[in-house]
Design a protein around this nucleic acid. Structure first.
Lengths: 144, 144
DNA sequence: TGTAATCTCTCTAGCGACTATAGCTTCAAG
DNA sequence: CTTGAAGCTATAGTCGCTAGAGAGATTACA
């Protein structure tokens, strides 16, 4: 019926310290404790943690996940917020993909220009980094 | 001839505290100082910082950039390391793109299944997150 | 030369989402 | 009843910055 934090970790693939971290962040409610002060979980916490894990895997922030959980706790509320969070996430993912594809193209070009057999002075990788003129595009900074 | 940290920031697009951070991290050498202890930069530092900025824009870590700079400082060394760093980065970018595309597909599916007009209880977004069975794929965690 | 506005200095703390460590206590198996 | 794994709290570290405090330096203009 009740299981330990280690069992919960095994069942969800979320590491033990991460589970405690989620509790501290308020994503998981504080669970029951054993006589010796160890956490004891049940089915509800298991499902909650799977929800969190799934959302994390999809790249949602813990803040966004908090909002989603809050909504889940109030089944009578409208779901515009949930939909918007998911759409925002989709948009963010698409933007990341776009930027990464630009980086990919530039890195391909740079690495293709260098056999790796020469001397640093003549290295096309280093030259490309030193001189932005050798670039085709402006590439914007990424957040990851 | 010599210019301030603010000038350097304007010329490179790198923020002032970031420049100081790079210096603390050893990516930039400690520059000359004015009589009043303010940093004074010249052409060499400008080029170095542009190199760093360009590499950051391409997603290289500061550690990788350190290695690239070290290589740049020793023009007689072979450039295999530089080439490998760039190839590793390319590979990392490609893997990120792959994972993001899986997330994109899943988020598209989830958001398409929900009009956002219903009630939280019936929300397809929330249902999808709660029940991994509603997923087509296993999606792996991302680092960003 | 005075003064005001802007810039720069160092230092510390915070972000997000964990991860690692230390030093201790509890639990489960044999 | 002992041993070893697993759990507890609390703190600090990761990465690449960013923000703020409170002080001092420089510059523009009168």
């Amino acid at each position: 019926m009740f299981f330990s934090i280690g069992d919960l970790a095994r069942r969800t693939g979320v590491k033990v310290p991460t589970i405690r971290y989620y509790e501290a962040r308020g994503l998981l409610d504080a669970p029951l404790r054993s006589a010796g002060n160890q956490r004891r979980y049940g089915q509800a916490e298991l499902e909650r943690l799977r929800f969190i894990r799934h959302a994390r895997d999809l790249g949602f922030s813990l803040g966004a996940i908090s909002s989603l959980i809050e909504l889940q706790e109030h089944p009578d509320r409208g779901c515009e917020t949930a939909t918007r969070i998911a759409q925002d996430q989709l948009e963010a993912v698409r933007q990341k993909i776009g930027r990464l594809r630009a980086l990919e193209a530039e890195l391909e070009r740079i690495t293709a220009g260098c056999t790796g057999t020469g001397v640093s002075r003549e290295c096309y990788v280093l030259a490309s980094l030193a001189d932005h003129e050798l670039c085709d595009h402006d590439h914007a900074p990424m957040d990851g």
